[in-house]
Design a binder for these strands. Sequence first.
DNA 1: GCTAACTTGGAACGACCATTCCAAGATGGC
DNA 2: GCCATCTTGGAATGGTCGTTCCAAGTTAGC
Lengths: 201, 201
Amino acid sequence: MPDVKHFDPEAVLDSVEELFWRRGVASTGVQDIVSATGVNRSSLYSTFGGKRELYVAALRRYADRRSGPVFRRLAEDDRGLPAIADFFRALIRARCSGAHARWGCLVTNAHAGPEQDDPDVRSVLQDHHDRLRAAMCAALERARATGGLRPDIVPATSADVLALLAYGVNLRSRAGASPEALAETVTAVLASLATRPEEIR
Amino acid sequence: MPDVKHFDPEAVLDSVEELFWRRGVASTGVQDIVSATGVNRSSLYSTFGGKRELYVAALRRYADRRSGPVFRRLAEDDRGLPAIADFFRALIRARCSGAHARWGCLVTNAHAGPEQDDPDVRSVLQDHHDRLRAAMCAALERARATGGLRPDIVPATSADVLALLAYGVNLRSRAGASPEALAETVTAVLASLATRPEEIR
DNA sequence: GCTAACTTGGAACGACCATTCCAAGATGGC
DNA sequence: GCCATCTTGGAATGGTCGTTCCAAGTTAGC
């Protein structure tokens, strides 16, 4: 009976995610979203709530659709350390070149801003962190199973190390760190985990 | 001949540094600075320039007076790995408890915001990063000299690892990471560098 | 005590902020 | 074609933003 929406909310969230990712929450106004999407303010507010809700939705979307699949692939990859090496290779490439070069990671960026003390945001951060750690841990356990991990390495603890390392890569890539230097840093960490250096590939 | 300043610019910068540190650049208005310092807008503008200049000055001050001495102490400490362990112990304590708990590091935070593409800000970030790496590298070379470092460890590369780790600690502590978990993560990295586990203390 | 030089208080600026409101428009079922 | 129902356009809200401006106040040298 009623009128139907004249736009695709999912497509709007895509644009919003990109805006917040590239320019940050504080620097992105509702007007910017209106301009970028072509959707009217009223429609934005009636559909999503407000700026805060838009940000949380975009953040959740980023964690689900961008980080999520990557983490899942890592967790399901049964090669062990080479899987982790590939993860970091792809990460560094995405952070330093291509369409999103020097944008960092939306979730990582959220850690550093005032937005992180919003409970909804905080829960996305925690969830994201747990999933990253779990994926790392799974990959390390594969490495252990195939004998690729040094005997004194504890997967759960080293998963934390690798997670923090990923945040570091996300951060420093924003300031223009060279992909080569980042790759060397990552390789050094992986070498400290491997029984044989060639394990990392 | 002229009138003299009725306030201490250094004291103002102290307050400004704290405001930007705690609440972030974007969320801190000039009005907040006026209220916190009691110094009039006109005086602020005629003395410092504007908000951008105030932020850059505060950031530089943070790097010089907060990070600087800590880096210097680390670089001059001749104990090797225990010096690095102490550095991280103090870092974690400062980030997770006390007056600045969960504030993170002003320089680390600057990486994630839109302020980082200001050339002046960028140069502070680069300088800060270089000094952190150099201090880590110096400490690692001491460890090498005293035989505390595994033979396959390259100080310069591991310095990069430790620097990224420090950024990771700064970031995650903001989201409420437990000091115990962070300490365990750091210990795992240090253990991978040491010839003998007891080297870390 | 006068004056030149600088600081200070406080109002005012225009631009932008997120949000609200309502009349006008569009739609699907009858 | 009509109506109930939702969406849309666009103006308007009150607030805050960073910055500017100028008159009034304060000081040191003469």
